[in-house]
Write a protein that binds this DNA or RNA. Structure first.
Lengths: 338, 338
DNA sequence: CTGTTAGCGCCTTCAA
DNA sequence: TTGAAGGCGCTAACAG
């Protein structure tokens, strides 16, 4: 592959001038620039990014760090979509992009900083690390900037992008109310999970907002499992025929409720409207397709990439970005006709 | 970050000696080595890969090139699984890994060779490029080694890994026969698609193998679409009650057949056994879960990565590897009881 | 506007 | 067994 030296020789100008011409500096004569450009093209010159990074002390490369790039994460297209977003945005911004995984054995004997230093990473986007992952703690302390996806921690060189969990859950409940539902149940996940409490809060707040009495017995616990929520929905629906809608803290649990309705011979959405949360792949395939609250991982990836580049380039940028979850309207919800 | 120079100063040995000690050369005194190792550890020294690559003229980095790292490919977990395999294997082998996509605008004005040269890629794994993609042609010509996934082209620096399309399709049909099915239909995809013809051939050959008469009217055309294959299956099943099993050239078409059976009030698998092909995500969720022939993209990724590293390191290695497709037994097939 | 000089961090002769 | 010198390809002062 042709180098600066080659172009220099072939064009008769010094390496420096060639470098400047090729990098678009304006302190170079038009004619010489044109000549150099021509020669460079002829020779198929392409700059050696490594050499450039070495002297510039920055690599124009962003790392994307995840816990487990493993088979298990495959079903969960969340990570992959984020990755796509990061990749697309980065390539728009003319940055390179490497994939890092904390779980690889070789990296167990390597600190986070070392990992960054080796590759001269300008910054890293982090997703899916547990809150107590040593790499995460290191990352936040580190001087190399990082942006966290769905992990709300802020710092000097640290930003994050996440979604409006509370607001979007509220939207879902408001949507039901707007369609005339008054007796709305809530299928809770594990009460210990952060997202569960948020969705529970959303449920209560919106009821209150609309002066609908909160009833304790309308809150079920499906433990984020399909079977559990089916089992809990079965007797509930039997005993509470007045309930016309149910908001589930996850799609999986909504699926359980759907099964329960089938066993009871209830029609969805005519007898019972169901809203889920997550927009799992399956949700659009079940019958009826599930109305649900979906995150936008692709968008989050793009925003995260954009933010990290801004931080790296020391541009003024918010260190906290929210990507709105979206209420995805499908067919499991309808107007209350009672 | 600490450099060789730092370690050199701190330990009192020359840069050269430090370098040799750290790289495990044996022409260095044990004591000095130990000292150096200690100092290096204290300082948290980590080699600068970029600098090393620059002088060694190789980067220890493999690229993974795909067409579209886009939203569209998300449903198709095939690419992602391959990626996971490549990544895992590469990190086991102590290689770095960068993701490349042909579709990014910036790369439209960049040749494949330039792309490789810039990053000093040692080799690249290619997946999902169309046969006439200019990058593919360039890749095959190029001096930088490449391994193709599911694109059987061989060359000096080129190898490929693919699956045993024909044999696995045969297995599927044989499985039906072994369960006593005699009247087996075949749902073809587009007759122009390569994979379709292979699966069709498999069907015919196995029938012949078992001395079952091939009947033209048992071959349907679902055009790889769900609705089309449902529409074609509907009258067929009505007119051919003797048919007890159907082999579909894709899961999507199998889903169409499944719908048809529902409309006809047929029970799967008791009245009709169905085998699909692809193992799409949905296939395990439908009712009944679909028996199907699945590729092993993760495995293919691993093999591809392993092969490219072998080629790069000039080790003796086959340039052609097959990963067996797997017949995934689920509940849409049963013994013929008629 | 152009060229010279120096150096990024590392590895590899070649001497000692 | 160790060190000095040179260079990978590139950019950044500093002169001219």
């Amino acid at each position: 592959m042709a180098t600066l030296k080659d172009v220099s020789k072939a064009s008769g100008f010094s390496i420096t001038t060639v470098s400047r011409a090729l990098n678009g500096y304006n302190d170079v004569n038009k004619e010489t620039r044109d000549k150099i450009l021509n020669v460079a093209k002829e020779l198929g010159y392409s700059p050696n990014i490594l050499a450039r990074s070495l002297v510039k002390k920055q690599s124009n490369t962003i790392g994307f760090l995840v816990t487990d790039l493993k088979r298990e994460s495959i079903k969960d297209n969340f990570m992959f979509e984020t990755l796509c977003g990061v990749s697309d945005e980065l390539s728009d911004l003319n940055y390179e992009f490497v994939l890092l995984s904390t779980s690889t054995s070789k990296q167990k004997n390597k600190t986070y900083s070392q990992m960054c230093a080796e590759r001269q990473l300008d910054g890293v986007v982090i997703q899916g690390l547990k809150r107590d992952d040593p790499y995460l703690l290191e990352a936040i302390e580190s001087t190399v900037p990082c942006v966290l996806v769905d992990i709300p921690v802020e710092g000097v060189n640290t930003g994050y992008v996440t979604s409006n969990q509370l607001e979007s859950a509220k939207q879902a409940v408001r949507y039901l109310i707007r369609l005339g539902h008054q007796h709305i149940a809530f299928m809770n996940g594990s009460p210990n999970a952060y997202v569960s409490t948020v969705r529970y809060d959303a449920y209560r707040q919106v009821l209150h907002e609309h002066e609908i009495d909160f009833r304790d017995e309308y809150v079920l616990n499906g433990d984020f499992e399909e079977l559990a929520s089916k089992n809990v929905a079965l007797p509930f629906l039997l005993n509470h025929p007045e309930v016309t809608a149910i908001f589930c803290a996850s799609d999986v649990m909504a699926l359980g409720v759907l099964q329960a309705t089938r066993e009871l011979g209830l029609n969805v959405p005519d007898d019972l409207s169901i809203i889920g949360f997550d927009n799992i792949l399956l949700s659009q395939y079940v019958s009826p397709p599930l109305t649900t609250v979906g995150q936008q991982p692709y968008e989050m990836g793009r925003k995260a990439a954009s933010m990290i580049v801004n931080i790296v380039e020391e541009q003024d940028t918010p260190h906290e970005v929210f990507v709105n979850n979206q209420l995805i309207l499908r067919e499991s919800v309808t107007k209350n006709r009672r």
